[in-house]
Amino acid sequence: MKRRPGIFAPSVGGIRRLALAWLLSLACALPAAAGADRVSVYPAYGDGVSLTIEGRVVESRDGPLAAADDGRLRNLWRNFRLWINDERKRVPVDLTVGESSMRTCTDDEGYFRLQTSQVLPAGWHEIAASSAKGVGRGRLLVVPQANRLGMISDLDDTILVSEVTSKPRLLANSFLKNSTQRQAVPGMAALYARTLAANPQPASAPLFYLSASPRQLFETIDEFLAGNGFPAGVLITKRVTDDASSDPLFDQFAYKTRQIEVILERLPWVRFVLVGDDGERDPEIYDWVRRRHPERVAEIWIRRVRGDGGAPLPPGQKALPAVLAGE
């Protein structure tokens, strides 16, 4: 007689739940590193007069850095730790940009946000941030007025192979691999560099990586971009909280169109190439942006991940193989 799953023969689903519970208990039990803080500063951008700086302060938990030979269990443990944060509520944060120093304070989720008017020369600038128990550094891009061509790029399945059309493979790529093991879409880093070289100052080109991933994954995405030779850009990730300040968790259309509208408003002299994939709603989102701001959209490039089963692209959008081939 075939045994039914029970106390002595747990189901596969039960085993998975027990394993996840064990991993979560390990992550939660990790002590703070001598009471230290981890101060994250998210990439910022401005027009040389006004800028917005955002970041987060949470409990610091030391652990081994990601390596190419890490196994799946180590990666799963590390990735789950990113979601478990003891946020530092209402703590002061000191910021330094250029010769200016400012102070702000974290909210109940550990996030901080500072808007300021400050004249800065064009190019990349370092941001230093410190709490009472930690320090962090970030980057700020002041876009030169002479740079008039920019790019706004999706991440998953546009430049990072995620396989969003298959939930099991998407979860395996997201949780069982680390940033050194994730696969970049071939040719994309070189394409971006080649496209932005049309600007007088390519190193300071307005390049935005617009990701639907939560900010807890910011560091791992940043490591992936740097490790695969993508040009320096501003990485935008979702603020996910349990209050009204949260970005939409599932409504990608609302999230991405709002972020793109902000970019267009802050950099009115720049025309953008929009790059995405047809795994979710990028063709629809970019078509909406083009109809609303036709003079601001230079090109729309879409990577087809659904194959022949995908819907036809809206008029004016190009499939990426043709772009990569120089057609």
Rank of each mutant, 00 (worst) to 15 (best):
L24H: 15
V58C: 12
E109T: 11
V12H: 06
L235Y: 00
G98M: 09
W83Q: 13
K318P: 02
A29H: 07
L120A: 06
N228G: 05
D70Q: 11
I302E: 05
G229W: 05
P64C: 10
L30R: 15
P314N: 04
S60F: 15
G316N: 12
G229Q: 03
P121V: 08
F80D: 02
D47N: 15
P168D: 04
R215H: 14
L320N: 03
H293N: 05
S117N: 09
F112N: 06
L51H: 02
L225F: 05
E223C: 12
E59L: 07
F175S: 01
P121M: 07
R182I: 06
N75T: 01
G276H: 02
P10K: 00
P10I: 00
R296E: 01
Q145N: 09
A203I: 11
E223F: 02
D156T: 05
A190V: 10
M1Y: 09
S204E: 13
A172V: 11
R290P: 00
E126C: 11
Q183D: 12
M102N: 08
I53S: 04
R113W: 15
D156Y: 06
Q183A: 11
E219G: 06
D251T: 10
S101F: 07
W124D: 09
P294F: 06
R17M: 01
L249S: 06
A67N: 12
L82E: 15
T96S: 14
L249E: 13
V234K: 02
L30W: 13
E280H: 11
V185H: 02
S153V: 00
G187M: 00
S179R: 00
S131I: 03
A122L: 01
G138W: 01
L170D: 01
F8G: 12
G6S: 15
T106Q: 05
R78K: 14
A325L: 13
R3V: 08
G14V: 03
M102R: 13
V57D: 09
R304W: 08
C105M: 12
D277K: 09
G276S: 10
A68R: 10
R258L: 10
D247K: 02
Q118L: 14
G14R: 03
P294Q: 04
Q259M: 13
R3L: 09
T158S: 13
I84S: 07
V93Q: 04
R239P: 01
A29I: 02
D278H: 04
G98I: 14
Q201P: 03
R56C: 07
L160A: 07
E284M: 11
K177M: 12
R61E: 13
I15P: 02
G110K: 04
A27M: 15
L207R: 03
N147T: 15
G279H: 00
P31H: 10
A19C: 14
K177H: 15
P314I: 02
G71E: 07
V323E: 00
P43I: 03
P231D: 07
L267R: 00
A146P: 05
